[in-house]
Every structure is written in C-alpha cells, then in structure tokens.
Design a protein around this nucleic acid. Sequence first.
DNA 1: AGCACGCCGACT
DNA 2: GTCGGCGTGCTC
Length: 731
Amino acid sequence: MSDACLIAEVAVAAPLKKTLSYLVPPELAVAARIGVRLRVPLGRRRAVGFLLELSRGSGEGLKAIAEVLDDEPLFPPALIPLFRRAAGYYLHPLGQVIATALPAGLSGRGSAPPILRETLYAPTEDESEPPGRRQRQILDCIRQAKEVSLTELRSRFDAPHAPLKRLLELGLISARQQERLRDPFLSWPLQPETPPEPAPAQLRVLEQLRPLLEQGGFRSALLHGVTGSGKTEVYLRAIETVLERGRQALVLVPEIALTPQLVGRFRNRFTGRAKISVLHSGLSDGERYDAWRNVARGEADIVIGARSAIFAPMPEPGLIIVDEEHETSYKQSEGFRYNARDLALLRGQQQGVPVLLGSATPALPSYRRALDGEALLLHLPGRAAGQPLPEVELIDMTATPFRTLLSDPLAGALEANLQRGEQSLVLLNRRGFAPYLLCADCGQDFRCPNCEISLTYHRGRLLLRCHYCDYQLPPPESCPRCGGSQLDPEGAGTERLELELKERFPEARLARMDRDTTTARGAHRRFMERMLAGEIDILVGTQMIAKGHDFPGVTLVGVVNADATLNFPDFRAGERTFALLSQVAGRAGRGTLPGRVLIQTYAPEHYALQHAASHDYAGFYRQELALRRELGYPPYGFLANLVLSGNDPQRVERAARELAGRLLPLPPGAELLGPVPCLLAKLRGKARMQILLKAAQRPALRRALDRFEQLSRPVPNGVALAVDVDPVDMF
DNA sequence: AGCACGCCGACT
DNA sequence: GTCGGCGTGCTC
Ligand SMILES: [Zn+2]
Ligand SMILES: [Zn+2]
C-alpha cells in the first residue's frame, strides 16, 4: 500500500449518493485546500465539486482534479459535519447541499464585482425656492440631508429624474459621482444610541440566559414574548456577552423582516465596536460573494441573514439566534428542503454553541421541546413599555348578508378612527382584485393551463394571473364559451378591498401594501416612512403588514377574513391562523392606548380564534398540542412527503403506485398514506402525486426513509422525485 | 442528473 | 433488416 499520492474526497454538485475520490496532481497540491471548489472529470463530463477531506494513498484507478476554482476556502472544515448531517437528514445529495448552502452565483470564477458609480446631490448656496411642488419636495429632502444619493432619492420619490434635472439647471443643487456603497443596508443613517435600561422582565430573562452564554456549549432556549415585548433588546445584550468572549454571533431573521431598519438597530448598538455583515438576497452575486468571504475570514463579528445564512462560515460562533422561529420561510421549499431553524439547533449541537429561538407564537415542535425540558423556556410577559394588550373582538359574519366585505362594526370602527385622525390596518390575506372571474351567463371560469387553478383577476394591471406560475393573460372582452359579455369578479382580494374602502371613506388616505405594490426597490421603506409621517390613514394589505413591519401609530386593526387561513386543508391551519392573528393584533396600540382589533369570521367559535382573541397563548398551545397528539401530527408525529412529478400524468400516477408498493411493508411504527394527487395536482405544467410517510417516533420515520433510500431507482425516467422531510406545507 | 449500454416493437 | 423506445447501471 503506497502513500505516494495526495487524495481528495470530493462532493460533486450532482445527485450522487456518495462522495468521490480524486487524485490531487502535484502542481495543485498547494491550492487544493479543504473548502475550495474544484472542477473534476465525471464520466465524460466535467462537474464542479467541493473538497471535503485530504488523505494519502496509492491513487490507483482515480482520476485527477482538473482545476482548483478558489484561492481561499469558501467554508471552514467545521461546517462539513453539518453539511453531511443535513444531507443525510433531508435525503439530499451532499454536493447539492453544499451548492445550496454557498452564496448563489458561484458557478463562474470568483471575480470581484464591478465597481458601481453613483450620483450624489447636494444643495448649493442658492436658497431660493423652485416652482414645482415635486421639485420643492425633492429639494427639501436634499437640503435636509446635506447630501443624498440617487438610489436614496429613487427610494423616496417616484421618477425623480426630471425634477432633479430641473433643479440642476436652476443651480439649486449640485451633483457629483462617487463609488457606490456596496451594500444598501449600510446606507441607512446611523444613530449611535445609549442602550436603554433593560426592563425587569428582560433582566430576568438575561439572567437565565447568562450561564448558556458564558459557559458556551450547546444549549437551546425558547424566548416567548409578544410583539413589542423587547425580544430584540434581549438579543442585543446576549450578543454583547458573546462578543466579549471573542466569539461571533449569527442572527437569522425571516427574509421579510431583513430590512435596513432591523439591521440599523444592530448597527446603532454596536457601531465602532463590532463588525456586522448582512447576507441578503438584495446583494449582487459579487457582493454576496465578498460578504461571504469576509465572514469566512473572521472579519465579521455579527452576521445577520435570512434562511441560507445558517451556513454562514464564521470561524468561531458563540451564539445562534433564530428570530420569529415559527416562520415557515425558514423552510426551503425546493431542492434541498432544509429548515434553517432546525439546522440552527443541529449546528449548535455540532459546534457546541447555544441557540436562542425567539417568537411571539412559537412553532409547536419548539414549544414541545421547551415543555419537555430540552430547551429553556423564557417568557417576556406583556409589552415592554407596559402597554396594555389590544382588545380583540370577533365579528360573527354569519349574521351579515352574504358577500359583505366590511361588517358594520368594522366599518364603524374605521370611521371612528378616521374621525380621531388615528391610523388603521386592514388585513386581507389575498392579493389581486378577485380570486375568480366568472361569466354571468354560463358560469365559465378562467384557469391556468399549467396549474389548473383559478386565475386571479388583477384590476390594476388588467390581467388574469396565476399565483403559482408566471402565466398571465389580459381578461377577454367576452366569455370564450358562450360569448356572454358580462364577466364578474367573484370573491375579494386586497385591490377590491381598497376600492371598497375608497368608496366608503372617500376622504381617507388609503394605501395598499402587498407583493404587487412592493416589488420596487425601497418600496417597503417608502410605505414605512409614509405611515410614520402620518400620510396614510388606512393601510390595506396581505400578511405582509402583519409581519416584519412595525407601524407604531396604529390603533385599529381589522382582519377581513380570518377563515381564509383557517380553512386551509392542512393540519397547521389552526396554528397559522393563531400566529397570524396574534401578530397582526400586536400591531395595534400606541403609547398607552391599547388599540383595538376586529376579526371578521364565519367560525367565531373556533378555538384558534377564541384563544387569539383572549391572548391566551398557553390555552391555545394546550389545546393544539392535545389535538396533534390525538391525530399523530407534529410534534407528536413525524412526517416526510415524497412528491413525484412529471409531464405525463399517467406515468407519474403509475410511478407513485409502484413506489408505494415497493416501500411496503414499512418498518414497524411507520405508516404510508397515499399515493394521492397533490393539492396542486398540476403545477407549472407537471402532474404531481404524493406519498406521505408518518411515524409516531422520529427513529421509525428514519427507518422508513432508510428503506426508501435503499431502493435502487425509486422512480423511472421522466418522473422526478422530491423528498420533503418535516414538510411545512403539503402542496 | 446525465450518459452509456442493451434489449424488444414497428417502420423505411 | 435497423431506429428508437426506455429499463438499468455508473459516475472516483
Ligand atoms: Zn359564458
Ligand atoms: Zn400556473
């Protein structure tokens, strides 16, 4: 046995079950370090792989690495066990796990992003006023800020170009070019702060956390506190402790909450003392790569990011925080279907790092872990400022005429709030004008040819759009079936709600916030600023207004249709509804005013609504846990969903039947449900079937999955198979 | 996943 | 007789 050759263990970014060994040619021996990307021969192709391990051996029968693609490692060796465990847990090929974990855009060579230039505007000595209103607004903004970037102006004003040109011509402002700030998150103005004195409840929680933070080692804690209870202050102080020990902190927040304001709170607290890196989707590929390498070099003390930041390559993390840990956006819904919250716990375990989960409405598995003593349960009762909780009322819609969008009590409350000059939020968890467009004569509807579900009518853009793929078409003039000329929108989305409010309260200043109005860069912030400035009386929106945005002036919250989430055919419907209502309720109240929440529903007796209305968290969890236990659902049961898809529905169907047949009989303790068509039986043109594996204990599910993994070719050609372990939805 | 190999039906 | 369907195996 010769040890003459250097051998590399490589995870190839292809769906292979095992890693492969390659010869490291002498000329690449220095460059081939653990954690770099490689180009390797694979069959008669070439593929990208990740170097996981180096060893010595004879090298017999091995092919040689063709190229080393990075001059420094993209991840530390300490992350490799996490990748391996994650690949095993989620039944996903290791190479693809790593490819998903690393920042996007690494397919090419690691090159520096182009330097971007940016125009900055400053006021001149000329203090006269320009003629136009828009010109004055923009000039005021520039005069106030002394110097403002074009990006900034674009985010505050629509189409600022023409007024700016005019102002330049008038000599009221000057312009200069500068290298653009790489990261939009860093352009939020800094306001260094003196940390507030923690409230007694916060001190108590911090005291309980102290041993975890100071001793290090894996422990987990669940911080349960309503919106405004001061969880962030606890995070900031916990991070402080960790930084003092020379370790780094990793903070995960849901994508929707990863805003400049949030990052600003961290920057304000730690400015000059700690370096903060933000990993977010708004960065260009080059910028993200830069940020990533900074973290890998240990140049970031605090890393803030959404889901994929769980893989941030910090050398010595001392704390992992997962804020709003119940959020389903932590679960990746395609490809490598990991849950960042669960991987946070796994990473903490592997690297001996405490993990702090925070939520106003913890996910049931997290709550159970805390009740079972696996995680330390910490409470922040009430709101930090001693504000009372809002008064929540359920409005029984069965008593109102069919199709009523706004009940009298809600309309009245909105009216009264308008009179008082106070702000209101109205939530309707459905965008567009109406979910259906129907022919008045023959009842014909319009469906997506790719997904076979109803197209949503968008009145603003005058389109029928599929919310599951990118299909859209302009609404026809007449019915394609009977030629009838009357096509009626049926049901209501945020656009229709906005219209109805406009008709009812013509004097009110309305705005609508949903995915259709927030795609532009800086749009979230613009809504935020308009709300803060009191320029909006009623803000209409989807769950977006309940999550990630704190509108401090709101005293009334209306929920148009609480049943929309409640009637979802998913065992988590109750939990989701409770969480959404609790969160949106948390938006009501200002100063010492408690705020009011009105929830319209056809099922006012439902326990999720009842508990949400009485702020009875313990009661809800008690009841929901009992229900889950009875039905064998998480956290008292464990699920994995096998989703088969393909162009030919019959093939998919047959493949699903055959797969189920080959899986049976399952090991004891596990059961197989299905195969059945997925809820979306067709999606993006592909037919879909699912097989659900269920077990009362995790090991039994694991054995069932082992059995599945041993199948040589689970599905035939032309059928794709995705495995979803711990699914959060069953589409 | 790709891309080979290999074995049977129905087409120039 | 072959062209091509697709089930099966392999990738260091
Ligand atoms: Zn018709
Ligand atoms: Zn579609």
